[in-house]
Amino acid sequence: MKISGSHTLQFPPEKAYTLMQDPDVLARAIPGCESLEKTGEDEYRMKMKMALASFSGAFEGKVRITDQTPPQSFRLLVEGTGKIGFMRGNGLLKLAASGAGTEVSYEGDALVGGTMAAVGQRLIDGTARMLIKRFFEKLGEEKAASG
């Protein structure tokens, strides 16, 4: 599944970029993230708990950041596996100044497998969009927290 879109953050690209490389910030912003633990350079182990309507499940996975070109772009790789299935996402995020804020555009692929892939077809697209939206909303809240 192809995923693309954009979101505006209320702080400049440098700040936005730094926030998005910060594991503590990512841990707060990634929906359902319970822990994010550094395992290597730009590589983290993640525990997630997803709950969507009656759907719910625990996932364990990895987050990796590559191809960093601060403050313009980086690639985010996320994968998670749980009893109800697995998911893998690979996206390129581009940051561009937009007024006082930053326009973050993203483009990538997402793969969902296992039981949830089989029953959630009509929901995967909408859910992915909702989760991305929540991620950026949470990220936006960082402004208040960290100035």
């Binding site: 793969l111 497998g113 892939a117 089989a118 029953v119 009509r122």
Partner: peptide, 12 residues
């Protein structure tokens, strides 16, 4: 493309 059966239930 990855070989997941996306019509994997009666709902699809």
């Amino acid at each position: 493309e990855s070989g997941q059966l996306v019509t994997g239930e009666m709902t699809d």
